[in-house]
Design a protein around this nucleic acid. Structure first.
Lengths: 244, 244
DNA sequence: TGCGCGGAAAATGTCAGACAATTAAATGTA
DNA sequence: TACATTTAATTGTCTGACATTTTCCGCGCA
């Protein structure tokens, strides 16, 4: 008595999709309780383990949260910026690493987006943002810092810049671009010379943001983009030569 | 009191995390096969259903795919741009709708990012992009078009603009910003007058991109951003007045 | 020898039922 | 009333079984 000829044969995915659509389309609102697993099971005519697999899929996307005990159950979850950041960064990082995205492509995307934030950051930055930028510049100038720490500090610096725009949506979108670049940046060996150059540009950028000079920030960001690009290309070349 | 583990009591989440980390850190490569469910179960000392819940979590994030039959199993999946787009758009849309993001905030983010693409699009756009933009402009000028269709066409137009930059990473990041705005845009009623204005600006933008005039594209995008903002604010005001 | 066919084997997909753990509400008691 | 206890609802986990899908291998046959 197969109702449909082709059995997609992944009931939990179908059920997850049905519930997900209900949430996305607003038919279920935040903090609304889903039926219990047993009720869902009978509603969809499947067993409880199958329902549970579906719910775990949704939980993995932070669409629901569950609570044990009486009057517990699964509830539609308010997606927080923090969780969205996390998911976005994970996805972006994997996308880049698994699709052999060229350094140039990622670098171009990152700086193009960052430059979009600069004018807003120049306008709205608060002392916190400036302090973070200065602190990271100071860290980056420390001798003996590992390449990895240098990169991590670079990310923090740039995120402070982005956050300076005071637009959480922008920060969210940018987080993916900035953080996902880190694995690619980590392949670069930062010489003393190149660190000095980068610190100088960072300082110029921080100065510009502090002075609310959008134009100067943009010019220096552009220069930093160009410089990063050459560093990346050098690293790629060295890597290519070594492997042949 | 409980020392380190504060009631772990979510084995499938822990197992999913362990496997996810292995994938993200590159300890498992694309198309590599995971141990079978039974093997994972004994490895983690849990039952098969628990392992399955963990695997479904990973499947929900497009980190693995499964294949039935002998020599089937779970395999690390290459995250495609299409799937990443989809996840990003879903997350972005929910983030905006669930956190009551202000129209101004989303609008600002979207146009800031889009303007970042414009110079690249002016440089690299191909006939396909131009054709799509022209076609959508034409559609937007049709009388009797529903507001919803007008918005959908707007999204297509802007995605063509973004894709014109020829940078898939940029397109990926922007997809979230552009698509997630749509529900907010859908709250606007587009009068004949405002549609005309938008079509004019779209035409000016398409002209600029075609002429590879980055400056003109930027100016018109800025104007479009400002105009969209006023439309949105009007809609919000009307809505507020109605509810009081 | 070569080729197709059919079964064995390995894996995921699904189900049923049970028990453990947790938690809020209802109930009982001083 | 205030506090302790029971109870019921619900998720978390386990065991075991069967269904389904897919590949591989060997057998029979030309």
């Amino acid at each position: 008595m197969k109702t449909e000829p082709k059995t997609p044969s992944d009931l939990s995915a179908q059920i997850a999709k049905a519930i997900r659509d209900a949430i996305i389309e607003g038919r279920m609102i935040v903090d609304e309780r889903l039926p219990s697993e047993a009720e869902l099971a009978s509603e969809f005519n499947v067993s409880r383990p199958t329902v549970r697999e579906a719910l775990k899929r949704l939980a993995a996307q932070s669409l629901i949260r569950t609570q044990r005990g009486a009057f517990g159950g699964a509830f539609v979850k308010r997606l927080s910026y923090e969780e969205a950041y996390g998911q976005h960064i994970t996805t972006s990082t994997l996308l880049l690493s698994m699709n052999a995205v060229r350094f140039e492509t990622a670098c171009e995307a990152r700086y193009a987006l960052e430059r979009a934030c600069a004018p807003l950051a120049a306008q709205r930055r608060n002392p916190d943002h400036l302090a973070t930028m200065r602190a990271e510049i100071h860290r980056q100038a420390q001798p003996g810092l590992s390449d990895e720490s240098f990169c991590a500090s670079d990310v923090t610096f740039h995120r402070a810049l982005v956050d300076g725009a005071g637009n959480p949506v922008l920060s969210y979108q940018l987080a993916g671009a900035v953080e996902a670049m880190q694995p690619l940046m980590n392949m670069i060996t930062f010489s003393e010379r190149s660190r000095e150059e980068i610190v100088n540009l960072h300082t110029a950028i921080a100065d510009a943001i502090e002075a609310q000079d959008a134009k100067a920030a943009d010019v220096n960001l552009e220069e930093l983009a160009a410089y990063t690009l050459t560093l990346g290309q050098d690293a790629m070349e060295k890597r290519a030569r070594k492997s042949t």
